[in-house]
Amino acid sequence: MWMGLSYVCWGISVVLAAWMLYDWFKVDTTYSEETLTSSREGELEAVSEKHRI
């Protein structure tokens, strides 16, 4: 049973790793680099809280 579980673990690892690589490729070819890296630190903070005492 344990050896079988070990093979199942290898199988799951390969399948999920392949899925992530596929999704990575799909996303990077669908969206522009500018959009993907458009996140900015602190913007929500600036808009929602404004730091007024």
Partner: peptide, 16 residues
């Protein structure tokens, strides 16, 4: 039985 398959599954599944 070695730990390698369990290590790989832990890291890959959690990364997913």
């Amino acid at each position: 039985l070695t730990h390698n398959s369990f290590i790989a599954a832990t890291i890959v599944v959690l990364a997913w």
